[in-house]
């Protein structure tokens, strides 16, 4: 995933965005088009609001976009419990927030810049399935209009994706839609069987 916003460099002509080699695109344009939610959340020791607005230029609609992003990412629920709302300070590297809250903040941060490409790099791993579902439901509308990459070990996260790519040891072992992969009965189907159950259990809990 790091190859798309050129955090890492791929060989020339191998990673294309809108048909252009990412190396040929201006870095600012490329990265401005990508909303990235990293696996490990890094927040700055500023307010929650400032963190969400991290990628936003100072503009009039800033607050509005922050609120919108916080809403979609389900962060606003948490923020409502904070003493100073969005103006609550995040301790050094986000220590006053729980793991899930940090991740939702990172998600809101990525959404706030309204990117045509959204990358969730295993970003929902540390939220529980219920929250994940809420987030994904909120994201559905947002995802409809943009290219989204979802990296996950959970089938529930990726099952609605148009294309599911199963990677194993750096290679693509399966690809297709959820139904196609299930029908194939391979690795994905196996994973699915397993996780379906767990999700079911979680829901009853």
């Amino acid at each position: 995933m790091g190859l798309i916003p050129r955090l890492f460099e791929a060989p020339p002509g191998t990673v294309l965005v809108d048909g252009h080699d990412v190396r040929d695109l201006p870095l600012a344009t490329l990265r401005g088009a990508v909303g990235y939610v990293p696996q490990e959340t890094f927040l700055f020791s500023e307010t929650v609001g400032e963190n969400v607005a991290f990628g936003l230029p100072p503009a009039d609609d800033r607050d509005e976009r922050v609120r919108w992003a916080a809403g979609v990412s389900q962060l606003s629920k948490d923020v409502a419990d904070f003493p100073k709302g969005l103006d609550t300070f995040v301790g050094e590297r986000g220590i006053t927030l729980s793991g899930g809250q940090k991740q939702r903040t990172a998600l809101a941060r990525a959404l706030a810049i309204d990117p045509p490409i959204l990358i969730l790099d295993d970003a929902l791993a540390s939220v529980d399935t219920q929250t994940e579902e809420d987030i994904l439901r909120g994201l559905r509308g947002v995802m409809a209009t943009r290219t989204t990459f979802l990296v996950s070990h959970r089938v529930s996260t990726v099952r609605d994706a148009d294309l599911i790519v199963v990677l194993k040891e750096g290679r693509i072992v399966e690809r297709g839609s959820h139904d196609e992969l299930i029908a194939r009965g391979g690795f994905y189907a196996d994973l699915h069987r397993r996780q379906l159950l767990e999700d079911e259990m979680e829901k009853t809990a």
Partner: peptide, 19 residues
């Protein structure tokens, strides 16, 4: 020092969000 520490650790985020 504080600024550098945070920004160096968080460099990927800084770059990703074109800050």
């Amino acid at each position: 020092n504080a600024f550098l520490q945070e920004n160096i650790t968080g460099m990927p985020v800084v770059q990703l969000f074109r800050r």
